[in-house]
Amino acid sequence: MTPGKTQRSVFFVSDRTGITAELLGKTLLTQFPGVEFHKRTLPFVDSVEKLQIAVAEINDCARQEGMRPVVFSTLIDEKLRTLIASAEALCIDLFADFISQLESELGQVSSHALGLSHGMGDELVYQKRMDAVNYTLLHDDGINTVNYDRAEVILVGVSRSGKTPTCLYLAMQYGIYAANYPLTPDDFSSQALPKSLMAHKAKLYGLTITAERLAKIRNERKPDSRYAALENCQSEIRAAENLLRQGHVPILDTTTMSVEEIAISILYGTGLIKRLKS
């Protein structure tokens, strides 16, 4: 627990993937920096039985912690929305208010159909996003650099600076072919960008982070290791930033940014936002 911060549990409940609930909910939560949120996503809750299990989990959390969790939901079915509202939590229905206002304004009753918010009706868009996700998975963490010519952006930075989740978000949400490459001590000793990146300099985008934040993230993965030591993090970040600056690669500090904010910044910083709007 971070000193001086209160703790609250947050649930994102959805009858689909939960991406919409997470995106909107997390954006709202960023406005409360004095609270440390413990988040959990419950996707594909599309039946009364599944929702009863979810409500039981939420209620159990409320009893154990002695305070109500916050629940963001994007449930379409009215029975499920009524049931989630009975939970011992602050339940924020992210669809209800918007849908009712749109129905009133447009003079039509909404379809209440599942999956439409994720573009399943547009097969071409859906397929492109799936292709982008597959590409990103195959080109994660510098595993495969052969097909970098297909990449639209290549994120570069030290380990755990936010490259992988940002690439996946760009692929899933926008259909961007995103690859990423981790800078390691081997790269720093050469004092030049790796050869596999040099031919694609125009696509490179650097991510950095404060040493304190990086050490905390790494300690969660490998506690008390040299990899997570503050001094090592400081050294790696300093060397990585020098390498990126020498290569005239733009750098984004991700320390206080959510994945959504990082992704949007990259879309505008690279100019890819223009393709999405065309």
Rank of each mutant, 00 (worst) to 15 (best):
H139E: 04
D93R: 01
S47N: 06
H118S: 15
M130C: 11
S161F: 01
E57H: 11
R129G: 04
F98E: 01
Q64A: 11
T41E: 04
F37A: 13
A85L: 12
F44V: 09
D97L: 09
H139Y: 06
L106V: 11
E65S: 10
E88A: 15
V125K: 13
L102A: 13
R129P: 04
L116Y: 04
G119C: 10
R129I: 07
H112E: 07
R129C: 04
I84M: 14
A96R: 01
P69W: 09
Q52N: 11
E105M: 13
L137V: 13
L102T: 04
N59L: 10
E49W: 00
H38E: 08
K163T: 04
F95D: 00
S159H: 08
L83I: 10
L114C: 07
T74H: 00
G162K: 14
R81Q: 10
C61H: 06
L116R: 11
S111M: 11
D122N: 15
I154C: 10
Y126C: 01
A56F: 04
V156P: 02
I58C: 07
D97F: 02
L116E: 05
D60S: 15
N147P: 00
N59C: 06
L106A: 15
P43W: 00
N134I: 05
F95L: 10
M67Q: 14
D60G: 15
C61D: 14
N59A: 06
H112S: 12
E105R: 11
D77F: 00
K50Q: 07
M120T: 12
K128P: 07
L155N: 08
R68Q: 14
A132K: 07
V109W: 01
A89M: 09
Y148D: 10
H38K: 09
E105P: 00
Q108W: 02
K50C: 06
K39N: 08
A56I: 04
K50N: 09
Y126D: 00
H38V: 14
G162M: 10
F72D: 02
S159Q: 08
G107H: 06
L106S: 09
D93T: 04
I84G: 01
R129A: 06
T136F: 07
L124G: 05
C91W: 00
R81V: 08
H139M: 04
E105C: 13
N147A: 13
V48L: 13
L114G: 02
P69T: 11
S47P: 06
L137I: 15
L124K: 15
R81N: 03
Q52G: 09
V158R: 04
I92F: 07
G142M: 05
G115W: 00
A132P: 05
V146L: 13
